[in-house]
């Protein structure tokens, strides 16, 4: 038994040596520029709607998020977003457009399984956890804030 675990350990060491490492610098550069670029577009939309529609700062922020989600969903539908993601990695996963991508891609994929169990149920396979942990942690924060206040 002990010899077996030792063998496994030695094997995993060998695998580590032979398997290539991710290109950290290249990946991070892509993530930085694409993530930065998406944020900059967000800023541009924010400034534009704030000025043109005479919105308050908070309203403009919310409007920007709506537009960005729409764009992310559309680019996913058109089959463009995954091509950006292949290079950009976190650069296109972390922005809110990536959240839209994580909703549309499974929903589209499972259309053959029907509009209830396919599209609607699968929509949240990836986005569901984000909502669950985001909302739950915000409730915990609210609760602590309420008790301390």
């Amino acid at each position: 038994m002990k010899r077996q675990t030792e063998n496994k350990k030695r094997y995993q060491q060998l695998v580590k040596e032979i398997s290539p490492k991710p290109h950290y610098i290249k990946n991070c550069t892509w993530a930085f520029f694409v993530g930065g670029f998406i944020s900059m577009i967000g800023q541009f939309i924010h400034n534009s709607v704030e000025r043109m529609l005479n919105l308050s700062h908070l309203e403009a922020t919310n409007a920007t998020i709506l537009i960005m989600i729409f764009v992310g969903a559309l680019l996913t539908g058109l089959g463009i977003y995954d091509r950006i993601g292949k290079r950009a990695g976190a650069g296109s996963i972390v922005p809110i457009t990536g959240f839209a991508n994580s909703i549309v891609s499974p929903a589209m994929e499972f259309k053959r399984e029907g509009y209830i169990f396919g599209v609607a149920a699968r929509m949240f396979t990836l986005a569901g956890p984000v909502l669950v942990y985001g909302i739950t942690s915000s409730v915990l924060v609210g609760l602590i804030y309420y008790l301390l206040k």
Binding site: N62, I65, L66, I69, G77, A100, I103, Y115, M123
Partner: peptide, 19 residues
């Protein structure tokens, strides 16, 4: 707003497009 947009736009795109 964001959550509703994600659900509605998500559903819309999923219906309109195919992978």
């Amino acid at each position: 707003g964001g959550i509703t947009a994600a659900v509605v736009f998500g559903y819309m795109m999923a219906v309109l497009f195919n992978p």
